[in-house]
Nucleic acid binder design. Structure first.
Lengths: 195, 195, 195, 195
DNA sequence: CGTTAACCGAGACGGTACGTCCCGTCTTTTC
DNA sequence: GAAAAGACGGGACGTACCGTCTCGGTTAACG
C-alpha cells in the first residue's frame, strides 16, 4: 500500500500523519475524519499524504500494522481452551477501545475500496496465522478434534466475534466469549483429560 | 426510519426512489451512489428524498426489507442438517449477487451511522428469529445438542459466513458451507439416528 | 458574460460578490484576488460564483459595467478642444484611483483570456461611441479637420493615454494631456476662429 | 534582473531555460506557462531558475532582450514619412507572431509585477530612443513640425498601435498604419517639398 | 593536485488556490 | 400542500504550482 521506501522521504511527516489520523478518528470517528484535517493536524501539505497513500484508510492501515507488530501474539500456556479464551477476550476488549473504532472504520472502507480490503486482509492474515500455529501445537498434544482444519477452526471462533461486533444484533456482555467457547468446544477440542 | 405513512405521500415517487437507489448501487457501487443521482434518476426533487428518509442507507434498507419480505423463509424438511445447508447456501449465493453488494454497503454504513445500524439490525433480527424458530422445532425432535442456546447457534453458523464474506481473508469456494457445517456438527447437533 | 437573467437567481449574492471582488482588488490588487477570497468575503459558496461567471475577471467586468453606466458621459460645451481636455483629464484621473487598478488588471487578463477581452472590448465600445458622437457634433460645427475618421481620431487621442498608463515608459505629470492635445491639434481640429 | 554574471554559472542551462520558456509560451500561451514546466522542458532543476530569475516574466524578458538586440534598428532612408511607415508596419507584423503573444503576456505581467514592468520599460526605452534619434535627424532636415517634442511624437505614433493591439476594439487590417500616419501627418511633419 | 564550495538535477516539502462534487436547506413554481 | 426543480452556503475532494528545502553528484577555482 505504501510505495517502496524512498530515500528522500521525510520520516517525521510520515509519523505525524499517522498519529494525526489516529487522533482524529478517536475524536470524531472514521467517517468524519478527512484528509484535509489530517494534513492540518499533522502540519503537513495534503500532497504529502496523497504522495504516499491512496486514501485515509491506507494511512490508518499502516498505523494499525505498526500497532499490531508492537503487540503481544497468541498466548501459549499449554492449555488450548484457556489460551483461546484469553486471546478472544483480548480481541473483544480491544474492539471496545478507540482502536476498535478505527478497525471498524477500516472494515467498512474495505467493503468499498480494494486497497483497504487488501490492507485489512494482510493484517488479519498475520493474526490468523498466529492462531493456526497455536492450534497446530495443540494438535501435537492431541488437544484438537481429529480432522479439523485449523484455519477453519479460527474462523469458527472469530466469526461469531465479528458477527456480533459488526452487526450488533444483540448487546454483548462479558460472558459472551465464554458461551461461544463452551458451545464450540465439542466441535474444536478433544475432552480435556481429567486432572 | 420512515416517518409514519402520510396520506398525501406520492407512492410513485417512493417506489421510483428505491428503484433508482438499487439501480445506481448496482451500476456504480454503494459508495459512489449519491442522493443527487438517486433524485435525478428517479425524476424526483432531492427534498422528496430528505422528506421521507435520513440517508441513502435508509432508502436502501427500505428496499432490502421489501425484497426480504418477498423471499422464501427458512426451509423445513425435517432434516435440520440439510435445511441448514440449504439456507446457508442460499445466503452465500445471495451475497454474490448485486443484492450482496448493496447489503455489503449497508453493513459498512452501519459501522458509522446509527440509523443504518438500526435498520440492519432489524432486518437481521427477522432472519435470526426464523433460524431460531427452525432450531426450536429441531430441538423438539431431539436433533439439537442439549443445552445449546438457539440464538447462539445461529451466530456460530452465520459468523463464519459473514467473516469470510466481509473480511475476505480467503477465497470462498462452493464447498465452504459444507465444511463449516461438518465442522460445527458436533457442537450443534445430536448424531443423526442411523437409517 | 453572464448567463441570461434567471428567475431563481439570488440578487443579494450577486451584488455581494461584485462588491467583495472590488474591495479585495482595492486591498490587495487584482493578481492577489482569488475566487476563494471573494466567496468568503461575500459570504457565498464558491459554486455560486462559478455558476454565473467564468472567472474573477468576468465578475469585475460586470461591476465595471455597472459603475460605467452610472457615470457621466462625454462633456459637450460646444468647444471641442476644451471638452476633449476635460474628458481625457477625467480618464487619466480615474486611472490613478482604485478603479484604475482594477481596469489595469482587467486589461492584463484580457491579454490571456478571451472572455475578459470581450468584456473589455464591450466596455470600451461604449466610451468610444460616445467620443465619436461628440466628434460628429463638432464636425457639424466645422471644428474637425476635413476627412478625419472620428473613430480613428479617438484612437489617436486615447492611444497615448493608454500607452503611458500601461507601459509606464515615463512619469506622467498633470500637463501630459495638455501637451498631447496641443501636439495633436493640427491633426484633429480646424483652427479655432479668432474670438 | 539577472544577477551579475557569475563565473560558475552554467551557460547551457541559461539558454535551455530561455528557449524552453519561449517554446512553452508559443505552445500554450503565457498564462499557462509555469516555472515547473519550463524547468522540466529545459531539463533543469526549478532552483536553477529561481537562482537567477525572479519569475517567468523575467526569464522571458531576458529572451526578448536578446531577440531585440539581434534585430534591425530604425530604418533611415532620408524620407521620415516612409521610414515611419516601414517601422510601424514591422512592429505591427511582429505583434501578430508568436513573439507578439509573448510580448503581450509580458505587458500583462507588467501591470501586476514591478520587475516585469521594469523589464518592459527598459526594452521599450531602447526602441523609443531609436525612434527619437531618427526624428532628431529628420528635424535637422526640416521635416519635423516646429516645437514638437520627439518623444511625445513617438508616443502619438505608438499609442494607437498598442491601443488597438492590446484592447482590440476593432479588427486591424493592413492599411491601419497608413491611415494613422496620414491622419497624424499634420501633427508631426512639415509638408513634403514638392518634386 | 587534492580540497572545497558553489552550482546543478531532482524532487519532497508546507502551502494556497483551483475548479468540481455533494451535502442538506431553502425558495420558487406547478399541479 | 406535496412535489419538481434547482439555487444556495458550505466543506472536502484530488490536482497543480508555488517558492523553499534537502540530497548526492559534478565541476571549477584555490590552496
Amino acid at each position: 500500500m505504501t510505495p517502496p521506501a524512498h530515500a528522500r522521504r521525510n520520516e517525521k511527516s510520515r509519523e505525524a500523519i499517522i498519529a494525526a489520523a489516529f487522533e482524529l478518528c478517536a475524536e470524531r470517528g472514521f467517517a468524519a475524519t478527512t484528509i484535509e484535517a489530517i494534513a492540518a493536524r499533522a502540519g503537513v501539505g495534503k500532497q504529502t499524504i496523497y504522495r504516499w497513500w491512496g486514501s485515509k484508510a491506507e494511512v490508518l492501515i499502516e498505523g494499525v500494522r505498526i500497532h499490531r507488530d508492537a503487540s503481544a501474539g497468541f498466548p501459549d500456556t499449554g492449555d488450548i481452551r484457556a489460551d483461546m479464551a484469553t486471546q478472544t477476550g483480548n480481541v473483544m476488549r480491544l474492539f471496545h477501545t478507540e482502536f476498535g473504532a478505527i478497525w471498524r472504520g477500516l472494515i467498512a472502507a474495505a467493503q468499498t475500496e480494494e486497497a483497504a480490503a487488501e490492507g485489512v486482509r494482510r493484517i488479519l492474515r498475520v493474526s490468523i496465522d498466529e492462531g493456526v500455529a497455536r492450534l497446530e501445537r495443540a494438535r501435537e498434544l492431541g488437544q484438537l478434534r481429529a480432522g479439523l482444519d485449523p484455519e477453519l477452526a479460527i474462523e469458527l471462533l472469530y466469526g461469531p466475534i465479528y458477527h456480533t461486533w459488526l452487526l450488533r444484533t444483540r448487546p454483548v456482555d462479558e460472558h459472551y466469549m465464554t458461551e461461544v467457547l463452551a458451545a464450540l468446544g465439542p466441535a474444536l477440542f478433544t475432552e480435556p483429560t481429567a486432572g
